[in-house]
Design a protein around this nucleic acid. Structure first.
Lengths: 247, 247
DNA sequence: CGTCGTATTGAGGAGGCTCAACTAAGGTGG
DNA sequence: CCACCTTAGTTGAGCCTCCTCAATACGACG
């Protein structure tokens, strides 16, 4: 934890502040059903005053399961994984988190999961104390965080559905579709796979050999094409969607 | 939906109001680490003014996936299941919900899951409109709902861990431990199983035959004893806990 | 006491896990 | 710049568990 640089976020910022930003699909009916920016400029400016910008290299542990939970984090740039190591020796990745995502899930003052960076990460750290105080002053901000939480809950339930599938290729397809949405939001055409095969296996609840074989099969069936180990291209969108949707 | 009675919650209530109540383990450090009542008397009274008491018989659908989400519900008494039917014909139960639990998860103005009662249920229905308005006036109430959401999110992640286990008996043991906590909160010594084997199977992500066999094995190993089909008694707490914890 | 839905038990087959060997890639030091 | 070394990923063989299909037992209710 001593390698990342620390800088205060206030002070030198220009009048328009783009971060910290939160993105989610609202629970209320809106124009369009896709994800939207939750925070207004004014709200971001209020948040940034309570925040500290932190930079983490790849493969850095941000916090560990069970350690005291002082802060929550909003990702500005980069990818992290949130996981728990189980008594059986297995590791369960609960979520991959990207720009504009929130992490810092706690129970009784302690973090529930371990969070580790996959890529270099820039994140906004906000102390729980400051945040709850801000919630008192600005219920509007609190409502946006609540909205984000609802979104994360839906994603968690979706994850449970993925894991529940019996077929390895189907599970992989569902993950790829998730990552595709991420990549599209980032403006990429192909799907970025920043995480390792082992991470994917731990997310999908299977062995990394099974991930490898499932990848192979998807490719042999002509649905996708792997470009190196960290990029995938959809070739047959029709069949791919059918497979992913056949939960 | 025409069989349940409707009654306004205000009006005839005594000065002390015990419901609607919400229970959760707070994310902040507290005395003890167990679940606590989130709402103060004053907060309950404010909520009850915006709420309608509804009664549902057993096996009643409260709402369906995709229907417009006008309200959230707080359970006063009874048990419900929240599920989705998948394209494959399988059903995935996302959660069993009990007294003092919250349901009504929505996305873009539509309910995500179908909710159906298992036992007769008394619930407080609160319109989303009234609730968000109340959140504006009373950020303290909003914070308690946020706290409950965090709790539910942890439970959802726990569910994903359960489903991820390979061994049927271990999965069943984890569910039984969850239900045991519920039963203890309700003051019962033995574990109540209000739901069917099929429900259990759909929650654990396996076939109901596998549930049956796993139950049998738990019993043969002397860990538990089934008293009828809807009650279980733990006989060997030691081994039972070890099995459930060996995620 | 019969009947229908729920639950249990059995046999056979498919899929993923484990163990193990091998290949590819990336990083380091000479 | 290349050889080496370490880590990550792929491929193969055998086993084990759970799923599927099918038949039987139980139990709640009329």
């Amino acid at each position: 934890m001593s390698t990342q640089s620390i800088r205060h976020a206030g002070g030198t910022t220009a009048p328009t502040v783009r971060e910290p930003a939160l993105v989610a699909i609202p629970f209320l009916k809106t124009t369009g059903s896709g994800p939207v920016q939750l925070l207004s400029d004014a709200q971001r400016q209020q948040l940034v005053r309570s925040a500290t910008v932190r930079h983490f290299p790849a493969r850095t542990i941000v916090y560990r399961t069970g350690s005291p939970s002082d802060s929550v984090f909003v990702i500005g740039e980069g990818v992290v994984k949130s996981y728990r190591d189980l008594a059986s020796g297995r590791r369960r990745i609960a979520a991959f988190l990207f720009a504009r995502d929130l992490f810092g899930l706690a129970e009784a003052g302690h973090y529930v999961n371990t969070v580790e960076t996959i890529t270099p990460v820039r994140a906004y750290e906000i102390s729980v104390e400051a945040l709850t105080e801000l919630f008192q002053r600005e219920p509007g901000i609190e409502l946006q965080f609540l909205c984000k939480l609802v979104h994360v809950l839906r994603e968690s339930q979706h994850h449970a559905i993925i894991i529940g599938r019996r077929d390895a290729v189907g599970r992989l397809a569902m993950l790829l579709r998730m990552l595709q949405k991420q990549s599209l939001q980032g403006g990429r055409k192909d799907i970025a796979l920043p995480m390792s095969r082992s991470d994917i296996a731990n997310y999908l609840g299977m062995s990394l050999e099974a991930v490898s074989r499932a990848s192979r099969r998807l490719e042999l069936q002509g649905m996708v094409e792997f470009v190196g180990r960290h990029e995938v291209r959809i070739l047959d969108r029709q069949r791919f969607e059918a497979l992913a949707a056949a939960a």
